[in-house]
Design a protein around this nucleic acid. Structure first.
Lengths: 339, 339
DNA sequence: CTGAAAGCGCTAACAT
DNA sequence: ATGTTAGCGCTTTCAG
């Protein structure tokens, strides 16, 4: 059916040298003459040689693969981040093994297992809930494998992380609504187990406070990041009769759901202005186009990757650092009051 | 800093048995007493043992990883497919190494390299262009590593593939427009190097023919799958003065771009009806909601994964097969003429 | 500049 | 039911 794969020994045999020489030649070792290198490389090609990374990894202790854990790739922000990571680490010869956690502890556990067993040289991850999984990450650190967090960090771990300033994102979004003349601004708060959502809420509150707007608990509505929940939240608001003049949603998806429901009865943005969070592609082409907060996914990925490369380059005296990206408010029609 | 990783030998030492026994116990080998198994498993946990898959892979020749190649994960269809694959293979203990080709030969080549060197047990891939990369795939087959194609297959390869009936998708979409009373239906044709787009075009032509509508070359406009190109195509149409009463686009993205431009001057669907292809999430919430063709990504992934598992289960007498999923026309407002 | 030799951690005949 | 032995394919001292 097929000839058994060619190894460095086969090449060595054909050239009457030893496998050591072949190995060195292939790895461009300085102490090998150019002639020999040429010979070996040629023969390798002719024999259709494919290096076995597993063997190399086993021997050298480096798999040249790094693990990337994201909640789910459907979220465009994570796709961008992965793209950024890939671009950056590819230059250094690393491949990535991607795992999804689906924001669920069991999946997260399984993902770690997969990565450990694949002997990845490092893990770049976005944590799920901020409780319950601490020990998972603790173990990574104990095992001394480089860990970089992004988007959703865990401060207590003290590892390098690339995050955006969610507080500022929330603040700016709310501030913008206030500047548009809104006074009764509701907030769709995301899962408060997750830090980024806490921060967005805090930013919202701070902006209200700074503007001297009295904060009312009923303004904050718990609303997970999906369209259906956004619709439900909007329906709840309409039933309650307690109508805001603006909504700052902690996610684009919930904002979209709300928009779909409210559009029937209210004018957006004139009756109710809406701001989302994440700059999902769809925000630019819904009607009216949605104001949102851009998180610079690609940059985030690139920076996380670079932190990883840094970390392995200066293994011993690497000091972890926090990289905080500034979010960018993208103002579109859904929040531009005319008056 | 950290103790060197514990191996099966350490466990064996602690228990005064041999590493073979430990290995067998850990792998739940039938010829090991339950008592021993318990002992070993306990000790393994106590010693914080982590199996080294690399070593196992090297020895057994199975990495328990499979490679998945997609054009790009931002496209929701591919995210769904990956999800489907993951769900299915995880049950059998496989992890996935994901690579993106960005519809570009150089990336595709690199992706194959990464996968080969990682010694994946199989590759599940969506091909890029249908020419130039044949030999890449040929090599996979020569090397005798299981290969399953999805979405974009290469018939000449004769390997198993899971695809959707793009011809039918194109036919149904066009037929639907005809039923709505449209007579002058334009088509935004995708890259004709890629088979799925050829098929959609063929389906479109066949539907016109079957309805006795005389086909005009000027009706087919070349238009890659992205919003900007869709906008340009629409602008071109408006400048030309040759106005259709419907557009069947080979992609949702191009359809969206066109819709954005045309909405200003025409009523959609009454003046111009629009149908896209792929059922990207945004199609359901643009305005008007877009009629499109659903491709059942999750199922496609699951089926591809199952084909792979089948293939390795019955290595010798496995016969490759084509699995053709039926696309599903999802009718929404963008194509429902009132008259 | 190249060779010899010793494994990395695990599995799998072949024993017993 | 367990032990012995021999590697998987590669890298990497240590010698020359």
């Amino acid at each position: 059916m097929k000839k058994s794969k060619t190894t460095i020994h086969d090449i060595a045999g054909a050239l009457s040298v030893t496998s050591s020489t072949v190995s060195r030649a292939l790895n461009n070792h300085p102490a090998i003459s150019d002639d020999t290198k040429r010979l070996v490389v040629d023969m390798a090609r002719r024999m259709n040689y494919k290096p076995n990374r597993l063997a190399a990894a086993l021997r050298s202790g480096k798999s040249m693969n790094i693990g990337v854990m994201v909640p789910m790739i459907e979220r465009s922000i994570f796709a961008s981040i992965i793209r950024g990571i890939e671009d950056e680490v590819a230059k250094s010869g690393y491949g990535i093994i991607m795992c999804q956690t689906y924001d669920d502890l069991a999946h997260e556990k399984r993902a770690f297992d997969t990565l450990f067993r694949s002997q990845v040289d490092g893990i770049i991850a976005s944590a799920t809930r901020s409780s319950g999984n601490m020990e998972l990450y603790q173990k990574v650190i104990e095992d001394d494998i480089p860990l970089i967090l992004f988007d959703r960090s865990i401060d207590e771990l003290g590892v390098s992380a690339v995050v955006i300033d969610d507080f500022k994102g929330g603040y700016d979004a709310t501030r913008h609504l206030i500047e548009q003349g809104c006074q009764k601004i509701f907030h769709f708060a995301g899962d408060q187990d997750i830090k980024v959502y806490q921060e967005r809420l805090r930013g919202y509150q701070a902006a209200l406070q700074d503007a001297g707007i009295t904060f009312d608990k009923s303004w904050v509505i718990n609303c997970p990041s999906n369209i259906e929940k956004g619709r439900q939240a909007a329906e709840y608001i309409m039933r309650s009769g307690n109508i805001p003049d603006a909504i700052f949603s902690s996610s684009d998806f919930a904002a979209l759901g709300a928009m779909q429901i409210l559009k029937g009865k209210f004018s957006i943005p004139d009756d109710i202005a809406i701001v989302g969070f994440a700059n999902e592609p769809f925000t630019s082409f819904v009607e009216p186009a949605m104001t949102t907060v851009n998180q610079h996914g690609r940059d985030m990925g690139r920076l996380a990757a670079r932190a990883f490369l840094d970390c392995i380059a200066n293994r011993k005296d690497y000091v972890s650092r926090q990289i905080v990206l500034q979010p960018e408010l993208i103002v579109r029609a859904s929040s531009k009051k005319l008056k």
